[in-house]
Design a protein around this nucleic acid. Sequence first.
DNA 1: CTTGACTCCGTACTTAAGTACGGAAGTAAG
DNA 2: CTTACTTCCGTACTTAAGTACGGAGTCAAG
Lengths: 135, 135
Amino acid sequence: MNELPETLTIGGLAKAAGVNVETIRFYQRKGLMREPDRPPGGIRRYGEAALARVRFIKSAQHLGFSLDEIADLLKLEDGSHCTEAREQAEHKLADVRAKLADLQRIEKVLKELVQRCCAASGEVRCPMIQALQEA
Amino acid sequence: MNELPETLTIGGLAKAAGVNVETIRFYQRKGLMREPDRPPGGIRRYGEAALARVRFIKSAQHLGFSLDEIADLLKLEDGSHCTEAREQAEHKLADVRAKLADLQRIEKVLKELVQRCCAASGEVRCPMIQALQEA
DNA sequence: CTTGACTCCGTACTTAAGTACGGAAGTAAG
DNA sequence: CTTACTTCCGTACTTAAGTACGGAGTCAAG
């Protein structure tokens, strides 16, 4: 089944994923990625799976998950305890919904501030700064 | 005009603002707040203005501004650079909207995963990671 | 007028998420 | 084979936003 080329060096992997080589090594140290075995006296090779993992880490991070949280997500990977996995996923879903609510509130405040700012040109004090002081 | 009691000690200010004393001192070192002159051989007193400033910093932080960005905002305090302040807010608003879109996407994915996980008990692999990688 | 809490001040430690450095060893091109 | 990259590995540095510590000085109560 697993038709894995394992063709990339760490540098190639880093370039493909758009990160620094040191970042890959950092993730390995953190346990977020395995280091493939190295052919004795040779250099490690990485395949699609490793690339997918870096990309996964980066996109989850972009969504505001910390590396520790991402490590939790990745622990679900084996699928051996589906109930546990589902519970973790539900927990993350709650996190995401809380973050969504926060962001929606922030969006509303910022939108109103920008509008008020636009309307108030000419006044002595910037309403944005004033509003933030009351917020 | 400025009827300022200047009654709080740094500890009182910190308590009123809900932050640590060290945080106030840290903001002072960062140039985000002035240190009031101290009556020779005495201790400093803080008034409403200082409290308002700490609150401003904290709420701007909650809106996703970094302390450096907040320092920039505070430089605009006189209101003569309202346009600049508005532009900063607009930029943040764009940031927030991008994050919102991302989070909505992942909320959908996670919700579906939880449902699928419920339905898939017995399967070897948890569909979680793979689906997130495609997200 | 002493005790305990608080202030002042500098320095140093913390966490997260990397980045940079330096030497040794592997590898690819000419 | 030599030269020029890379990899590998450990250690150390960086930034943001604080927190903690320790020794003075100060202030209010008993």
